[in-house]
Nucleic acid binder design. Structure first.
Lengths: 245, 245
DNA sequence: ACGAAAATGACAAAGTCGTGACAATTGTCC
DNA sequence: GGACAATTGTCACGACTTTGTCATTTTCGT
């Protein structure tokens, strides 16, 4: 296992604009190849972080939490194999696509042992590499599906901004989603109105305290079996609210 | 980028019978080599179109939509590199196999920059070349099996930039295709206007603009059964848009 | 230079959220 | 237990924000 140096991150970040599609980590020592790879992914609107060696690669992996890793096995210092295993230990469901020269014998079993998800032999068409990477990302999304939050007979998908209660769709506004998300992330904790206003509404806004109550009301009406006697969005008299799944 | 002369096509077509397996475009200046290559592919029942220089090659590429291109990098007038890139711009997933003399240093990175899919060094065995070409074609089929995207009664072919709704052709502009493609690639996800402007338009900042809405409007008018009550291109109030197939 | 496509701006329409009033509930003190 | 104050629940209205849509201008490819 590699040394555990905390994110000092000296990776060649080079300001690929944050895109929302996520970051792809490229670990590759050849500068020209770096450039090629960066262009390929940047063209499809991914953010790209490039690391030239294994240690930086691992640091970048920690720091950026990429949606996928493209890894050249031939690396100086730390072997790509070691790096691959380390990354899989940290986050096993981040797909790793291995690059290998056509000359090298592609040992599929070895790749599997490393935990690699796919491989592409050089030379490859950018199109093919992109397709492989996207396929891997999609596959992972299917395997470890979105963050669906469940409680009682409710299902909330914060990513898709959809909600169901008893199988029937429930419409929630974006503010309601935000508030509910904050509650789910801080379940069982008593949250004051002031805190909620700061965290969910944003610090600059300072509406009347009735605002929070109103949103709570809406959420109860939409999600509680009996809105008058809430079982999940509880009032803590004199303190605030508490969410219990 | 090369001049965009429309299919005047002066390529040495020489009546290779149409075969059903598709056409292979050979770009090669040496007449003797032309003959050899033609024979190789004709023997395997491909149609063959030969071009002697870059410009004719590009014209032929447009006109014949080959299933693969065999390209000698050493070309008069237009460099093979330029040609390769141009073809990739037009149809990025048509495989290109590069021929190079054994004397030349095979620069894999360069090939990648060009977007080439594979290379074969001269002298080569016909068998090997054929294998490489067929492998590339197969790979493309696997990678991009069918680019036709279906939802509801719509069929979108992003490769050919054509669309149908209920069997009837629908005309979409290039921006509309781009936007729709982005939506299909990120179905079910809520995409903010800002993100869309960044990813589809390539803007950096977002001024107050109705641009996105306008394109959404157009797409709805062209693809939704009832544009006023969209079923696929949904508005998420306060957040953006979401595409559900 | 022409025509199609895209961006812009104005306005209307729709939806959301905050506000305040008032009722209901809870807690506290007697 | 009862009275009072403090806190919270609930509702409706209006202001504000966001979005739909159209007309117009600008851009861009040919």
């Amino acid at each position: 296992m590699l040394k555990e140096i905390e994110p000092a991150v000296t990776a060649t970040d080079e300001s690929t604009p944050e895109s929302g599609l996520g970051t792809i980590l490229v670990v590759e020592d050849d500068p020209r190849m770096q450039k090629v790879l960066r262009r390929i992914f940047a063209a499809e609107h991914y953010s790209v972080v490039v690391a030239g060696d294994g240690q930086t690669g691992l640091d970048s992996f920690r720091a950026h939490r990429p949606v996928a890793v493209v890894l050249d096995l031939i690396l100086p210092q730390i072997s790509g194999r070691e790096l691959c295993q380390s990354m899989k230990t940290i986050s096993s469901d981040t797909p790793v696509i291995v690059l290998s020269a056509i000359a090298e014998v592609v040992d599929k079993v070895l790749l599997l042992e490393l935990g690699a998800d796919d491989y592409v032999t050089k030379p490859f068409s950018p199109r093919e590499l992109m397709a492989r990477v996207q396929a891997a990302i999609r596959r992972r999304r299917r395997t470890a599906p979105t963050t669906i939050y469940r409680f009682d007979d409710c299902e909330i998908d914060f990513q898709r901004m959809t909600a169901q209660r008893g199988g029937l769709p429930v419409m929630l506004t974006s503010h309601e989603f935000k508030l509910l998300k904050f509650f789910t992330e801080h379940a069982e904790q008593v949250l004051s109105r002031e805190l909620l206003l700061n965290e969910v509404w944003g610090y600059n806004a300072y509406p009347t305290t009735r605002t929070v109550d109103n949103q709570i009301l809406k959420l109860r009406q939409k999600l509680e079996p009996d809105p008058a006697n809430p079982r999940h969005l509880l009032t803590i008299y004199g303190a605030g609210y508490k969410f219990v799944p």
